[in-house]
Amino acid sequence: MTQHIMQICLSRGWGGLEMYPARIMPELQRQGAVNHALALSGSRVAESVRRAGADVFTVKSPLGALLAVRRLLAYIDSHAIEVLHCHKSSDLRIGALLAQLRPRLRLYFTEHMGVTRPKKGLYHRFAYAQVTRVFAISQATYRRNLKALPLPPERILCLGLGIDTAPFQAPPLTRSDLGLPPEGCLIALPGRLTPGKGHEVWLDALAQLAPQPSWHGVIIGGLKAEEGSDEAYVAQLHKRVAELGLEGRVSFTGFRSDLPQLLRALDIVCIPSRNEAFGLTVIEAMAAGAAVIGADSGAIPEVIHEDTGRLADPDSCAAWATALAALIEDAAERRRLGANARQWVEANLSLETHVAHLLDAYRLA
């Protein structure tokens, strides 16, 4: 039976959370669902879900969604929408209100960020009482959700993310395409340029590496606020690169829409973030066949194992320097880890499997 689903993401940011609805929509449609979205007008979320083929109901602000509740209900009724799926905790305001006014609706919430403090006050008890299931994206966040949310365990489901692995098999970009040195081991840190992602530890580790064998560092991520980054932090990183004498050894790529092909061109991908709720960038790099070093914290150890990558203390630049030096000097080990990682992601974290599990959960009464 066809399911009519509305993804709700009232955010003007641009990160993994905001990208998620558009990422899953083509596979939802392929598996028989009809896609709708509630998003902010002019946001990248609205643009991305339109490109993914969804009908989009837009509002100017989260408050505007509450003020438009009558029109929203009419849209939901006219399109026979059965499922609402929220992606920010603040989206639960409109999601819970819609579910209370239309009891036939099933309301779901993916807790993308990893809740860090209890949410058991009066408002949260009301909002979560309307939620059919909360999806935790890792075992690490599942354990936190059990403690923090006003829900019984049976209404919290661990549902890891998945990716479409096909784009990560495309031919890699060339170094000349990227304006990078023709020789040497390429070591990258992809992700939003915001505090907490571990850029400082990573740069300090690079500064400890011997210049030979040759290597080059690459920071991948938007440099502007509208691309999800903290512009003041970006300026700090440029300053730190200069202070460490790494200006000729570290490049900033800016935002890249061709990330799969870019990841395919890299030798080592580093994810030193201290508290990843899942580690989507980790599995993207693994799918691309890169040798990955991840922080030994948060959810990253759930996806990096001894035969698929390396782990390092996110607070120790010495540990990162040691791990990097070992892989820089051993190209055969890099290839082995990358091949194993690609196979593991294809077997365990495909988008097709993720969406099938998601649709099964949507059918729960």
Rank of each mutant, 00 (worst) to 15 (best):
Q7H: 07
G13L: 08
G16Y: 03
E27K: 00
A33M: 01
V34T: 12
L38F: 04
F57Y: 15
S61H: 03
P62E: 06
L63R: 11
V69Y: 10
V69G: 03
R70H: 11
A74G: 12
D77E: 11
D77Y: 05
D77Q: 13
S89D: 11
S89T: 13
L97D: 09
L98A: 09
L98T: 07
F109R: 13
T110C: 03
V131E: 02
V134S: 06
A140K: 10
G160Q: 15
G162C: 00
P172D: 13
L178S: 00
G179P: 01
E183T: 15
E183A: 15
E183L: 10
E183S: 14
W202C: 08
W202T: 11
L206T: 01
A210I: 08
S214V: 08
H216F: 14
G222A: 15
G245V: 10
S251V: 04
S251A: 12
F252N: 00
S257A: 13
P260D: 05
L266F: 05
I271S: 04
G279A: 01
L280D: 01
G298Q: 14
P301I: 13
E302Y: 11
R310N: 09
S316G: 05
A332S: 13
R334G: 07
A339R: 15
Q343M: 15
W344S: 15
V345E: 00
T353G: 14
L359A: 02
